[in-house]
Design a protein around this nucleic acid. Structure first.
Length: 276
DNA sequence: ATCCGATGTCAAT
DNA sequence: TTGACCTCGGATC
């Protein structure tokens, strides 16, 4: 679930349902008792997503609530008519009239002072989902780095919001060797990658899933129809190790890069230097 | 009933 | 590079 598109979606839903309203705030699970109490009975002003981080502002409260889902966290929204099974522990619950938002399993749910918010934002690279993002900032880091693209793309200080799926898929879509050093990337290729990320991630916000296989790329020769993967939309390589590449039929490979499983097609993505 | 992996990140080594 | 942390659901016994 949680790459940048998920969090922008969450921010939009929180904004739509709660902005401008007085909310009841609590921490049933207990780990956010003080923070939840601090904003309880205040008016929720607005919600912002920056990469994978969500910040919630309240009227008359100097701090903002910072939420990061990590790998496991999730938000659920329910209205009073909904019948929803009780699952797990709720770190933070927001209630306004008939709407309830519940946060479970986040890596972070905390109050941040304005100074801390500024520090958080300062260490994030441009977010393809924000209109104010400047892809040049990412380019400066990439073009100065010997690190492999597959590592750079996962670095939130380079580009904020990319996760393991977008990383693998965007490398495939641009036929790039995952271990190509950043400094060897052509500027024109970076521009194309950025433009692609903007489109793919906006699409992800719209649909709520990551879907990177476009009809014009579907190889008719494979005789396959697009189908939903267990983890969401149709993808070229993510979690498809051992299966034939949708474009050329070569077996998709996997290897841990930057602590996560990277998936790539050794044929489509250039000379196979990533053999380890 | 139990195991294991997961669209994440940080600190410690 | 590894371990720790957050939690759930699907696979496996």
């Amino acid at each position: 679930m949680p790459e940048g598109h998920t969090l922008h979606r969450v921010a939009a839903e929180l904004r739509d349902r709660f902005a401008g309203r007085i909310v009841t705030s609590s921490s049933p699970q207990g780990q956010f008792i003080l923070g939840a109490a601090r904003v309880d009975a205040h008016r929720l002003v607005d919600v912002d997503a920056w990469g994978k981080h969500v910040l919630v502002r309240f009227d008359g409260v100097g701090e903002q609530v910072h939420v990061h889902l990590g790998l496991f966290g999730r938000w659920t929204f329910t209205v009073s008519e909904d019948v929803v099974p009780v699952v797990g522990e709720v770190r933070w619950r927001l209630l306004s009239e008939s709407v309830v938002a519940e946060l479970r399993g986040p890596a972070a749910c905390e109050l941040l002072s304005p100074r801390e918010v500024a520090a958080l934002l300062a260490r994030l690279g441009p977010d393809p989902l924000r209109d104010d993002a400047d892809p040049d900032e990412a380019w400066h880091r990439i073009s100065a780095s010997r690190a492999p693209l597959a590592t750079l793309l996962m670095d939130q200080a380079v580009v904020a919001g990319i996760g393991n799926v977008y990383r693998a898929e965007v490398l495939f879509r641009h036929r790039l060797q995952p271990d190509l050093p950043g400094r060897e990337l052509a500027r024109s290729t970076w521009d194309a990658i950025w433009a692609d990320l903007v489109n793919l991630m906006r699409d992800g916000v719209r649909s709520g899933q990551i879907d990177t296989v476009r009809p014009e790329h579907m190889p008719l020769a494979m005789g396959r129809e697009p189908r939903d993967d267990a983890h969401g939309g149709e993808v070229y390589v993510y979690r498809r190790s051992g299966m034939p590449c949708l474009v050329c039929g070569t077996i998709v490979r996997t290897k841990a890069v930057a602590g996560r499983n990277l998936f790539w097609c050794p044929q489509c993505q250039g000379a196979d230097r990533l053999t380890g």
